[in-house]
């Protein structure tokens, strides 16, 4: 006796899912995961640790100085010198970081160049502008790839930023991870449980971010309670003392900046 499957079992009827909606949820989950990866320690352990020759505050100052020099000057020789300097610094990086810096510069640089291409019609000096923009992007990407969140906070501390600002920056970085994880879990839960189309994707967004805001408040209240319980009076732990080597480095930095600035004039 042969059994024949009923017709409805042999034909597949796909669930009416909102394709676009799923797409944007998945896309956002990917972006969030990438953001959270920057915070994960496992990620750091997988890569060779970077040797930091200079203090974080000097690194920040150096980046600011180079960007300022690049945008102030129109001198090709100066751009060339800075490029050579950048290349030497890039050579010192382990390959895994080097690839990351170059990849990010290529992607962001492509966008920047696409944006200024139409100005060729306006007879603008696109080549110089593009070269300067690419160099700035290279420096910025180098900074963000080789600097950890803690180093930024230390740099701000050493540069005598008010305690309250550093404290708030610190909270932001910590809770960026916490809220990011919370949002990722929410998104995963939503994408696992929703079947079919929702009336309007924005209604769901209202729900997602409304919940996230309430969570924000909860976190803030808990944090304040914890701070109060531990006797927090608004003073942040004192900044580590600057070493003499750092002071010398600062002097060197200022000299090089002035020299390059005068050269570029």
């Amino acid at each position: 006796m042969s059994t024949k499957l009923p017709d409805w079992l042999t034909t597949s009827t796909p669930l009416p899912t909102g394709h676009q909606q799923r797409h944007f949820l998945a896309q956002n989950m990917q972006r969030l995961e990438r953001l959270l990866q920057r915070f994960s320690q496992a990620n750091d352990l997988a890569r060779p640790p970077l040797k930091h020759f200079i203090a974080p505050q000097h690194k920040l100052l150096a980046v600011l100085g180079v960007i300022l020099l690049l945008s102030l000057n129109q001198n090709i020789l100066l751009l060339w010198l800075l490029l050579l300097g950048d290349l030497v610094i890039l050579l010192l990086l382990p390959p895994i970081y080097l690839r990351q810096v170059l990849r990010q510069t290529a992607v962001t640089g492509a966008f920047a160049i696409l944006l200024i291409l139409p100005s060729l019609l306006l007879n603008a000096n696109v080549a110089l502008f593009a070269a300067k923009t690419l160099l700035i992007l290279l420096n910025l990407n180098y900074y963000r790839t080789t600097t950890t969140f803690n180093q930024v906070i230390t740099a701000l501390q050493q540069l005598h930023c008010p305690n309250s600002v550093i404290f708030v920056v610190d909270i932001t970085l910590i809770y960026l991870k916490m809220l990011g994880e919370f949002l990722l879990q929410l998104l995963q839960a939503v994408s696992l449980r929703t079947v079919g189309k929702s009336k309007h994707p924005y209604q769901m967004i209202g729900l997602l971010f409304g919940t996230l805001y309430l969570k924000t408040r909860d976190y803030a209240l808990d944090l304040y309670a914890a701070m109060e319980a531990r006797g927090f009076i608004g003073v942040y732990p004192a900044a580590p003392r600057t070493r003499q080597r750092d002071q010398l480095y600062l002097l060197l930095e200022v000299t090089v900046f002035c020299f390059l600035f005068l050269l570029g004039r």
Binding site: F24, Q27, V168, I171, L183, Y202, F209, T216, Y224
Partner: peptide, 24 residues
């Protein structure tokens, strides 16, 4: 409202996530 200090920090994180979230 004493919880405003930590709230600004956490709200900055929220603002970051809002700006990161792509909407269809």
């Amino acid at each position: 409202k004493k919880e405003t200090v930590p709230l600004i920090g956490v709200a900055a994180a929220l603002a970051f996530l809002i700006m990161m979230f792509n909407l269809p």
